[in-house]
Design a protein around this nucleic acid. Structure first.
Length: 853
RNA sequence: GCCGGCGUGGCGGAACUGGUAGACGCGGCGGACUCAAAAUCCGCAGCCUUCACGGGCGUGUGGGUUCGAUUCCCUCCGCCGGCACCA
């Protein structure tokens, strides 16, 4: 095919042009109402770090394919975008670069938005929301007051990482090896007053309603279920004796395994427990142990992985059934935040208790036995009771019931459902967040800010010293009057967790300008029938963000907003964009193209091309600028254009898997689009009618491709959708266009329509070139004829004893008897089948398996 | 540590509900075009064995269920995500 005389594919020349035609008149504007069914496509909104990275490109391309496809299928599509604009990085940038968080954030947004438009993602930008602006966080304050009125907001306490030098609370990621990242001082786990949301009131609904989400990945539902962590057990107490304790001292514990009560040989307190604190007052060694345990910070992972350590208290816990005086320890691994902050230990039946008992030489008494029990090892499964007196011989489940019943009768305990889920502490001692709309009055206590004073705006003249909370340090901002008594009072200086901002943005998109937080008509229309029709984002949000958003929807529903029971009807979690990371001996990160890979005796090694020196191959990592393990979208856009990058993202890996960065694969996408371009140039010259009958094989390929691409988009198999388009391109290229001009022309036109959601610019350009005046974004999705999509002949596989021995070409609707007869007659079958056929297996349209002796 | 997932040619991946393993693409090899190269086009290709026809092996490991397993079940190994103040 001679393409030298036709214009070359130059995305730079055509992409901006088409973007003008989309965004200037906003052809993707979505309005509530009308005859078309609604479809809400939502992608997780980005944090405006300033750099759009490949992970965003992937996420938003996945969403855009669906949005464009659904529009072509006749839906009224809502497809918005916005900015999760509050957060720690802006304050860090303020300290590092002496810029204001607001300025830094808004600049980043402008920068990223420019690039996002260049990708041609079909957003209705008139719906844009920015969480750091009063127009967003004001309504959020109103919703917070709604929840307060509903009794879902309260003052509680939570453990935080405290930096004693900087006098500030640290995020977990600001704690490095137990020290504050700026001050270097050892952190201290400390209890602080907090604003809390009563998410635990919704624990049952959050669990039960997972069943209403068939279009969520099972793994996400399982993770949420485990996070909620519903369990049934008993909360009971031990009488506690020891010097300095009150006479009626009791130690409350919770266990899911009361069947191991007779194997209980000690109890362990968390470092935060009241009796731990009591002992510390008189025992300096205990105080030192507690301080050391608290120096781990609050991160669950650190606590769990730390060496299990204990400190023996002089207290004794009295066993409720044997009256044995059991040792009581303080343990660095016991959580203050789960159950009662103290545990009973039956070390024969719990891995962690067993390790602890072995280390400190505490008694280990097996009381449950079953298959697989081993001497000297903990046996965690349920089984049959032994060494348990009157409960001997009972199953664990029966014993659990019996022990609980007895404890209830004695009045020392009660059966109880326990959740792992804790209430949501939303207070942050930071500047760059939504101010919490409350006022502290010395006379009236904590008072809600009157709604007419919203939004309570952040002051702009603040200093970022890294010490304390800038809002609290501000000389005048917090000074106000009490709305109740009119006296002098102070504003709350805590701001909200940024997870609050991202818990309802999908609702504000629907009415970004209304004075009320939510416009009931718009929200009712778009959230009808189960909420957002398709939500798309990274798997890293499987639990926290998705659980908070689910809670928010339920809470807002109960505050009277027509948001439904669940925010997201269907969920797609995509993998990360990762790259091979190489590091030279001097610490420099090298680009993959700077590295030569060699395989010596099956051991892979990498060498720097420039110097020949061997470099370290690090594990696959999320691609980032600092690691040089991938390129940034802006440079690649200039080189290849948006359509190539979009196609690359879709084709290289299925959405749910991680995508490995590879510039070679981008080249492949680029080449394919050039082939489509050249093919369309040829097609444009072909007549629109033909005399010859249409080529049956090409026709079949065309119609089956429409079927496959449609089905693949519906199930998010975007990689195979692209492959199908490639196969159609190959078939059209190989076709005899002189003999079949009309069919080839039709085929190319259809190819453009199928490829449009993935590559909207090049397809619009070529579609117009073929003489179409209606743009593709306003053209219906192609339909196919099932009869034409069906191949006339199929390959029937013939197996003997499960091994393929022959392949027969037969009519697609061959009858079972003829198929088996043909199979038996095949010479290869005669050769391999020595005796009589014992069994005939027939899979229609696929295979015959003849089983012999 | 706890919870969840993934593992298929040299590479990314395909294989609908247990039925031809390797579609499509990258890289590689051979050819055409070219003074030459790039680009493009045509062809070959899982591994082992065989001159060839063919045969054997093969979806991280080991086992199980089945006429038949990449697919279902169990063991182990490796890698990845989350763990409540990163977003």
């Amino acid at each position: 095919m001679n393409t030298t005389s036709t214009p070359k594919y130059a995305p730079q020349a055509i992409e901006a042009k088409w973007q003008e035609t989309w965004f200037k008149p906003n052809v993707f504007k979505a309005e509530a109402g009308g005859a078309k069914p609604k479809y809400y496509v939502l992608e997780m909104l980005p944090y405006p770090s300033g750099q759009l990275h490949m992970g965003h490109v992937r996420n938003y391309t996945l969403g855009d394919v669906l949005a464009r496809y659904k529009r072509a299928k006749g839906f009224n599509v809502m497809h918005p975008m916005g900015w999760d604009a509050f957060g720690l990085p802006a304050e860090n940038a303020a300290m590092k670069r002496k810029t204001h968080p607001k300025q830094w954030t808004l600049n980043n947004i402008a920068e990223m938005k420019k690039i996002m438009r260049q990708f041609g993602w079909s957003y209705d930008w008139s719906k844009e929301v920015t969480s750091c602006l009063p127009s967003y966080y004001g309504p959020q304050q109103a919703l917070f007051l709604d929840m307060f009125d509903k009794g879902l907001v309260y003052r509680g306490e939570a453990l935080v990482n405290w930096d004693p030098i900087d006098q500030t609370v640290l995020a977990n990621e600001q704690v490095v090896d137990g020290k504050g990242w700026r001050s270097g001082a050892p952190v201290e786990r400390r209890k602080m007053p907090q604003w809390c949301l009563a998410i635990t009131k919704y624990a049952d609904q959050l669990l039960a309603d997972l069943d209403k989400l068939p279009n969520w990945p099972q793994r996400v539902k399982t993770m949420q279920e485990n996070w909620l962590g519903k369990s049934y057990g008993v909360e009971f107490y031990f009488k506690l004796t020891g010097e300095g304790l009150p006479a009626d001292a009791k130690l409350q514990v919770y266990t899911t395994r009361p069947d191991t009560i007779m194997g209980t040989s000690f109890a362990v307190l968390s470092p935060e427990h009241e009796y731990s604190a009591l002992l510390a007052q008189t025992d300096p060694k205990a105080a030192a142990f507690i301080a050391e345990a608290k120096a781990m910070g609050t991160a669950q992972e650190i606590v769990d992985r730390a060496e299990k350590k204990g400190y023996p208290t002089p207290y004794k816990a009295i066993h409720p059934f044997t009256n044995e005086a059991m040792p009581v320890w303080i343990g660095n691994f016991v959580l203050a935040t789960y159950g009662t902050g103290a545990i009973k230990s039956a070390p024969a039946h719990d891995e962690r208790d067993h390790a602890f008992a072995t280390k400190y030489n505490l008694p280990i008494r097996p009381v449950v036995t079953g298959p697989g029990v081993e001497e000297g090892k903990p046996y965690a499964p349920k089984g049959t009771l032994i060494n348990s007196g009157k409960w001997d011989g009972l199953t664990s489940d029966a014993a659990i019931q019996a022990v609980i019943a007895e404890m209830e009768q004695l009045g020392i305990g009660k059966g109880k459902t326990q959740w792992r889920l804790r209430d949501w502490g939303v207070s942050r001692q930071r500047y760059w967040g939504c101010p919490i709309p409350f006022i502290h009055c010395p006379k009236c206590g904590v008072v809600a800010a009157p709604r007419e004073t919203l939004p309570i705006q952040l002051p702009e003249d603040v200093e970022f010293t890294g010490s304390g909370n800038p809002l609290a340090n501000h000389p005048t901002w917090k000074q106000t009057t009490c709305p109740t008594c009119g006296g002098a009072a102070e504003r709350e200086t805590d701001t909200m967790d940024t997870f609050m901002d991202s818990s309802w943005y999908y609702l504000r998109y629907l009415c970004p300008y209304t004075k009320e937080p939510l416009d009931k008509a718009a929200v009712g229309y778009w959230m009808a029938g189960g909420g957002v029709d398709q939500y798309i984002g990274g798997i890293e949000h499987a639990v926290l963000h998705l659980l908070y958003a689910r809670f928010f929807t339920k809470a807002l529903r109960d505050c009277g907003y027509p948001v439904g029971d669940e925010p997201f009807k269907a969920l797609l979690c995509h993998g990360m964009v990762v790259g091979n990371t190489y590091q030279a001996a001097d610490g420099r990160y090298l680009y993959p193209r700077e590295v030569e890979l060699r395989d010596a005796d099956g051991v892979k090694a990498a060498f720097e091309r420039a110097t020949g020196a061997e470099v370290k191959i690090l594990p696959m990592e999320k691609i980032s600028k600092s690691k040089n393990n991938g390129d940034s979208p802006d440079g690649l856009l200039a080189k290849y254009g948006a359509d190539t990058l979009r196609l690359y993202m879709l084709f290289t890996a299925p959405p749910e898997r991680d995508l490995e960065w590879s510039e070679a694969a981008i080249e492949g996408a680029w080449r394919f689009l050039n082939r489509v371009w050249a093919l369309a140039q040829v097609a444009a010259e072909l007549p629109t009618t033909q005399t010859a009958a249409p080529d049956r094989a090409l026709q079949q390929k065309l119609h089956s491709t429409i079927a496959k691409v449609s089905a693949d988009i519906e199930r998010f198999q975007y990689n195979t959708m692209v492959a199908a388009c490639m196969e159609l391109t190959n078939a059209l290229q190989a076709a005899d266009s002189a003999a079949q001009p009309a069919l080839v022309r039709e085929g190319v036109a259809t190819l453009l329509r199928l490829l449009n959601p993935a590559c909207p610019h090049i397809t619009e350009e070529l579609w117009a070139m073929l003489g179409n005046s209606t743009p593709l974004h306003a053209t219906d999705w192609p339909t196919f004829n099932p009869a034409l999509a069906q191949a006339e002949e199929i390959t029937l596989v013939v197996q003997v004893n499960g091994k393929v021995r022959a392949k027969l070409v037969v009519p697609h609707d061959i009858a079972k008897d003829s198929a088996i007869a043909l199979a038996k007659a095949a010479p290869e079958v005669q050769e391999w089948l020595s005796g009589p056929v014992l069994k005939e297996v027939y899979v229609p349209g696929r295979l015959v398996n003849l089983v012999g002796a």
